[in-house]
Simulated scan of single mutants.
Amino acid sequence: MAHWPHQHFDTGPCQLVVASPAHRICIGWFGDDYDAWAISAAEDPVSTPRWTARINQNTPPKIVEGSDTFLTKTSPRWTDGVRPLLDAGWTSSPPRRGLLDIISPDGLAGASIDVVDADPDAETVTL
């Protein structure tokens, strides 16, 4: 990642943006303790991100540990998008107001899944 283009900003909330050479993956550093990093990945430079995470120093490492499936096409079944979490023992709660929550076994992380929105470009899973 050291060879990826870096852009530094003097104003605004984001102080550093690092983009992959193909501009499909972007990482922003906000320099504070709340949502210090924003990471997104898209199929191509101008598409809506298929995967987004906002993390800080309290984020458990297992949240950002890798899989090469983060850019797969969106599935109409919400379970497909969170299959790695469910396979790792995360548990779900009954849906409320169109959102279903799943929680990690240690209770330190969670995800909310929009099980109602039919827009294919909508952000359906929020960690």
Rank of each mutant, 00 (worst) to 15 (best):
45 P>C: 04
114 D>S: 10
94 P>G: 09
64 V>D: 09
55 I>T: 12
123 E>Y: 06
92 S>H: 04
11 T>Q: 12
28 G>I: 01
84 P>W: 01
49 P>N: 01
78 W>N: 02
3 H>M: 15
45 P>F: 03
5 P>G: 00
54 R>E: 15
64 V>L: 12
40 S>I: 07
90 W>F: 08
41 A>C: 06
71 L>G: 03
5 P>I: 00
85 L>C: 12
33 D>M: 10
102 I>Y: 00
13 P>F: 08
123 E>W: 04
26 C>R: 14
78 W>P: 06
54 R>T: 13
85 L>W: 01
56 N>Q: 07
73 K>S: 09
62 K>A: 15
25 I>K: 01
66 G>S: 11
77 R>G: 12
98 G>T: 03
40 S>Q: 08
32 D>F: 05
82 V>E: 00
35 D>N: 09
41 A>E: 02
79 T>I: 11
109 A>P: 07
77 R>E: 13
114 D>M: 05
14 C>Q: 04
80 D>C: 13
28 G>H: 00
96 R>K: 15
61 P>R: 09
92 S>N: 07
14 C>H: 04
65 E>T: 10
89 G>L: 05
93 S>C: 08
35 D>Q: 11
123 E>D: 13
74 T>A: 10
81 G>V: 06
94 P>F: 02
60 P>R: 04
93 S>Q: 06
76 P>T: 09
96 R>P: 11
21 P>N: 02
95 P>E: 00
43 E>P: 07
18 V>W: 00
42 A>H: 01
124 T>F: 12
31 G>A: 06
22 A>M: 11
43 E>I: 13
34 Y>T: 14
126 T>P: 00
68 D>R: 11
45 P>Q: 06
122 A>G: 04
71 L>D: 03
61 P>A: 05
34 Y>R: 11
121 D>T: 13
56 N>D: 11
52 T>P: 13
73 K>G: 13
10 D>M: 05
108 L>Q: 15
54 R>Y: 12
96 R>Q: 15
120 P>S: 01
2 A>C: 14
116 V>D: 11
99 L>C: 12
79 T>D: 14
106 D>Q: 10
3 H>N: 15
29 W>R: 00
100 L>S: 05
106 D>T: 11
96 R>L: 14
79 T>F: 06
34 Y>S: 11
71 L>Q: 03
82 V>M: 01
45 P>K: 07
97 R>D: 14
122 A>K: 03
24 R>N: 05
81 G>L: 05
29 W>H: 01
2 A>I: 15
8 H>I: 12
107 G>Q: 04
65 E>N: 07
30 F>W: 07
121 D>Q: 11
28 G>D: 02
5 P>V: 00
46 V>P: 14
38 A>Q: 09
28 G>Q: 02
54 R>L: 13
42 A>T: 05
69 T>N: 05
111 A>Q: 04
11 T>D: 08
109 A>Y: 04
83 R>W: 03
3 H>Q: 14
10 D>L: 08
89 G>E: 02
49 P>K: 00
102 I>W: 00
92 S>L: 05
92 S>A: 14
108 L>V: 15
103 I>R: 07
94 P>Q: 09
28 G>M: 02
7 Q>S: 08
125 V>L: 01
35 D>T: 12
59 T>C: 05
85 L>I: 09
87 D>S: 05
2 A>S: 15
14 C>D: 02
69 T>P: 06
101 D>A: 14
57 Q>G: 15
14 C>L: 08
99 L>F: 15
11 T>G: 09
3 H>C: 14
99 L>D: 12
113 I>R: 02
